[in-house]
Nucleic acid binder design. Structure first.
Length: 307
DNA sequence: AAAACATACAACCGCTCCCAA
DNA sequence: TTTGGGAGCGGTTGTATGTTT
């Protein structure tokens, strides 16, 4: 005689979440933090089961979730990680922290499975050797590049965003303020420079104000603003007021710290998700053709649809 | 213009795992 | 050691939206 599933309880609401429910859930988590999902419905008055609340948070409302099209590099990562790990979507998602396991799973089922059926060569192994540091460097720079290149796609997506979607974006914006005030977020200028470096910025790179702010705000740097003093201290460079651009410079100290942080994150990932050793992944991650291969596949797909 | 079909993705369901009592 | 409950994961479904006929 087991108890009935929580979702079978009479009075529990199912189906799409309303903006009002989202706000209630977000404000509750803002106050108490995620976790103890069992108590969320009773404490908030939401007519949802705990599972539904957790799912809504992790797959949709959680800050830092990247929406919109997957980049060729992300595609490549998913394809290779799927080949390596199988349908372990949570484990795969740990390598793509901005994507949810649900998103990756959906993308695999709707896009990649079909593509791979047509072009199984995308799974062929590639060889290369390099250090873990190089892996991280490349991974980060690819991430940065994809963020920039996907801006037009993001803009297009934003143009077609529904009223409801807009409201969830507003919730996300509210959450950014919360994230900045939570512990363990990056707070000082050294860390800001580090984030810029981690985002793929090189010494003396000239990046736009938009990029500068998006990189830093995404990584929860407190009170990032676009003024000369911030630019100078944050990026160890200088604002070009006329051009609205900032010159990035990264000190050797930051490189040192980056290594330490990267190691911490790597260990964390491995501990939490039983991920495979990095040495295997670095082989293909560092392979330039990994992303290119997917692009090539996309081109072939386009051609095949024409003929 | 409308119906039929295809696609994308949010959400649900059922199962397993983990942990505390 | 066993057991019950909570959390997390992967598979699947339902529905909204877009595209084609």
């Amino acid at each position: 005689m087991g108890r009935p599933p929580c979702c079978d309880i009479v009075g529990i609401k199912k189906g799409p979440w309303t903006p009002e429910e989202d706000i209630i859930l977000v404000s509750y988590i803002q106050e108490h933090g995620p976790g103890n999902w069992r108590s969320v419905p009773t404490n908030t008055g939401l007519l949802r089961c705990s599972k539904s609340c957790r799912l809504r948070w992790t797959n949709y409302l959680r800050p830092g979730i990247k929406r919109g099209n997957f980049t060729p590099h992300e595609e490549g990562m998913i394809i290779h990680l799927q080949a390596l790990l199988g349908n372990k979507w949570a484990a795969i998602a740990s390598y793509l922290p901005q994507r949810t396991d649900n998103d990756i799973k959906n993308y695999w089922n709707t896009h990649l499975k079909k593509k791979l059926k047509k072009f199984p060569s995308a799974l062929e192994p590639h060889s290369s050797t390099s250090t873990t540091d190089q892996l991280v460097e490349k991974s980060n720079s690819l991430e940065f590049a994809s963020t920039s290149s996907s801006s037009s796609a993001a803009a297009a997506a934003a143009a077609t965003t529904t009223t409801y979607a807009s409201s969830t974006e507003n919730i996300s914006r509210l959450l950014q303020g919360w994230m900045r005030s939570t512990p363990n977020t990056t707070k000082n200028e050294d860390d800001s420079a580090l984030i810029l470096k981690e985002s793929g910025c090189q010494d003396r790179d000239l990046i736009s104000r938009e990029e500068f702010e998006s990189i830093l705000s995404f990584d929860n740097v407190n009170n990032v603003s676009w003024d000369k003093s911030t630019c100078e201290s944050t990026s160890r460079g200088a604002c070009d007021d006329g051009e609205d651009k900032v010159k990035i410079a990264v000190t050797p100290e930051n490189n040192k710290k980056q290594k330490a942080d990267v190691n911490t994150n790597t260990n964390k990932n491995n501990n939490n998700n039983n991920n495979p050793p990095l040495s295997f992944l670095e082989k293909w991650l560092l392979d330039e053709s990994s992303a290119g291969q997917v692009e090539e596949m996309n081109q072939m797909m386009e051609l095949s649809s024409i003929f």
